[in-house]
Simulated assay, not measured.
Amino acid sequence: MNVDILLARYAAGDRDFSNAELSGANLAGAKLSGINLIRANLSHAILRNANLSGAFLVLADLREADLSGAISIVVNFSGANLQGINLSHSQLTEAILTGTWLQRANLTNANLQGAILAGANLIEANLQGADLRGANLYGTDLRKADLTGASMTHANLRGADLEGAIMPDKVITV
């Protein structure tokens, strides 16, 4: 789908773009709150500083996409492929990331306060300085993840795999 067409349809009130083909699209700075991108292909897309608040990205393909600085408050990413995604400095407060694939994702300084990451794959993810206060990481795979400087007060880590994870002052070996 052409970006100009998507933006024109969105401006006209259309919010359903499920199954859209948007790989490599440049949507930097776009205001797309409440958009439905369920099962959309956004691999390698540029969404820097975009506003995706309240968006539905369930089962979407966002591999290697750039969402740095994006505002994604209360976004549903359940089951999405976010492998290698750049979410540094993003606002992901209360985002739903249940069962997402975030292997090798860049979440440096991301705000994940109250986010639900239950069952997510965060193997080798960079979570340096991330705000994970009150986040649900139940059953999350955090093997070899870098959590240096992350705020994890009241985070639920039950059943999480932290083997080889880098914490502020040590490596956890389980």
Rank of each mutant, 00 (worst) to 15 (best):
S78N: 14
D16V: 05
L82Y: 07
M152D: 01
A30Y: 04
A165Q: 07
T173E: 10
I166D: 10
L47F: 05
I123M: 12
P168G: 07
N126V: 02
I5F: 03
S23A: 15
D131I: 14
D16C: 05
D169I: 03
L42T: 02
V58S: 04
S88M: 04
V58Q: 12
G159W: 02
I38W: 00
Q103M: 11
L59S: 13
I172F: 15
S43P: 00
K170P: 01
S23T: 08
S88A: 15
Q128D: 01
G149S: 08
N76G: 02
N126I: 10
H89C: 07
L67C: 15
A150S: 13
A60V: 09
M152L: 15
A130D: 09
T93G: 00
S18T: 12
L27E: 02
L112T: 01
A120L: 06
I73M: 12
G119Q: 03
V171P: 00
A150Y: 05
R133C: 12
A110K: 07
G114L: 11
A70L: 10
A12V: 08
V75S: 08
K31P: 01
D66W: 00
S18R: 14
A25T: 07
D66N: 15
Q91F: 00
N106Q: 04
S90G: 11
A145Q: 06
G69P: 05
N36E: 12
R48P: 00
D66Q: 10
F17R: 06
G114V: 13
L132E: 04
I71C: 07
Y10T: 09
A110W: 01
S90Y: 01
G54T: 10
A95Y: 05
L42R: 06
E94S: 14
N109E: 14
T108N: 10
A60C: 08
G79Y: 02
Q128Y: 00
L6W: 02
L82F: 09
R143L: 03
A40N: 02
S90M: 10
A120E: 05
D16P: 05
S53G: 14
T140S: 15
R133S: 09
L97R: 06
K170E: 12
L59Q: 13
T153D: 11
A145W: 03
L42W: 06
I96L: 15
R63W: 01
